[in-house]
Design a protein around this nucleic acid. Structure first.
Length: 121
DNA sequence: GCAATGACGCTCT
DNA sequence: CAGAGCGCCATTG
C-alpha cells in the first residue's frame, strides 16, 4: 500500500491514532524509540511528533512508558523528570533493566518493530 | 498567516 | 563517554 498521503475526515486524530497504535504493538519487556515509532506510524523524521502525541495522550490504554529516546535514554528527563520516574518504574516492573545512568539496554530491549519476531538477531 | 515552542535525532566538540 | 548545537515537521497562540 502506498500509505494514503492524506486521509480525509480526521486530521490530527488519525495521525495520533497511528502513533498510539504503534506504541500499543510494543511487546512487554521491550522498548522502542520515538523515531522508531514515528517511522512505523508513517511519520519519518518526526520523532518530535511521536513524543508530542504521547504527551497529548497523557492517560490512556497506550503504554507510552515503553517509548524511550534515542539510545535508550529517557527523553522525559529533559523536561518532565517526574514522568521519567514513573516511566522507569513501569519499565522495571515489566522486567526492563536500566543501566547505572538511567538508560535502557537497547541491545537487549530494542524492539525491531517487526511483528511476531523480536529483534533479537 | 506568521512566529514560537516542542515526551526528539543526529553530528560535532 | 558526555555535553552542546542545529535541523526536522507539526501543533498551538
Amino acid at each position: 500500500m502506498k500509505r494514503p498521503a492524506r486521509l480525509p475526515g480526521s486530521d490530527r486524530n488519525d495521525k495520533y491514532a497511528r502513533i498510539y497504535a504503534v506504541v500499543r504493538r510494543i511487546p512487554k519487556g521491550r522498548v522502542a524509540t520515538y523515531g522508531q515509532v514515528a517511522s512505523l506510524a508513517g511519520l519519518p523524521r518526526q520523532a518530535r511528533l511521536a513524543g508530542y502525541a504521547l504527551h497529548a495522550l497523557g492517560d490512556g490504554p497506550v503504554p507510552w512508558h515503553r517509548v524511550v529516546g534515542a539510545g535508550g535514554l529517557l527523553a522525559l528527563g529533559r523536561k518532565r523528570p517526574d514522568a521519567a520516574v514513573t516511566q522507569r518504574l513501569r519499565l522495571e516492573h515489566e522486567g526492563v533493566r536500566f543501566d547505572g545512568r538511567g538508560r535502557v539496554d537497547m541491545r537487549a530491549y530494542a524492539w525491531s518493530g517487526a511483528r511476531g519476531r523480536a529483534a533479537g538477531r
